[in-house]
Design a binder for these strands. Structure first.
Lengths: 95, 95
DNA sequence: TATATATTTAGACAAATATCTAAATATTGC
DNA sequence: GCAATATTTAGATATTTGTCTAAATATATA
């Protein structure tokens, strides 16, 4: 996981909203765009950032491009967080 | 939790390294600074960002200021992540 | 009180980023 | 092949951000 890319991707509210939009299943770029008052070009930029972070997957379907969540990276990110913030009763790695 | 502040705070590698440095216990600003090749002023800026996100707590001890992790926000963040990325076998909130 | 040490604040600057419009590319269907 | 639609790329611009040095503030101690 490219940690830096993932965190930078998550730092923008529009991108987090895009991820949230994708929770219930894959959507085309245009469908996602309907929820945002932003140009298609700007949206495309956000898609690129999410893709670079491997947070979303894409698939061309005819003239559309379909975006979906990549939950694998989410799990990595969650693990990373737990690693970064030791909870009170977790053992610390003894290394 | 100020989600936006937390994510922005986590997006910088120096700040994540500071958090990691604090895993084993509280440290003064100066002690933290020893690990970084960066001016005290820049470091102080990073502390401010982490504080604004409520990721660290501070306490003055004489002429020193002691920083420590605030693990509460971590837990909030983890929860937020799980909410954002539904895992395959989790039920979705029916609302 | 004066000096030394620790930290933050102020102000400047360069690099990164979110946005836009216009143009390019890919695909469909006539 | 051509026109329409969907999406991305290019280039410009304004804002944000990470860094610096210099100055200010807070505390300790001689």
């Amino acid at each position: 996981m490219k940690q830096q890319e993932v965190f930078k991707a998550m730092a923008d509210p529009t991108r987090r909203a895009i991820l949230k939009r994708l929770q219930d299943g894959a959507l085309t770029a245009g469908e996602i765009g309907e929820s945002f008052d932003i140009s298609a070009a700007s949206l495309s930029h956000h898609f690129a950032v999410l893709k670079r972070a491997d947070l979303v997957r894409t698939e061309r379907r005819g003239q559309y491009i379909v975006y979906s969540l990549n939950s694998t990276v989410f799990e990595d990110l969650a693990r990373m967080l737990f690693d970064l913030f030791p909870s009170r009763n977790a053992r610390r790695d003894p290394s």
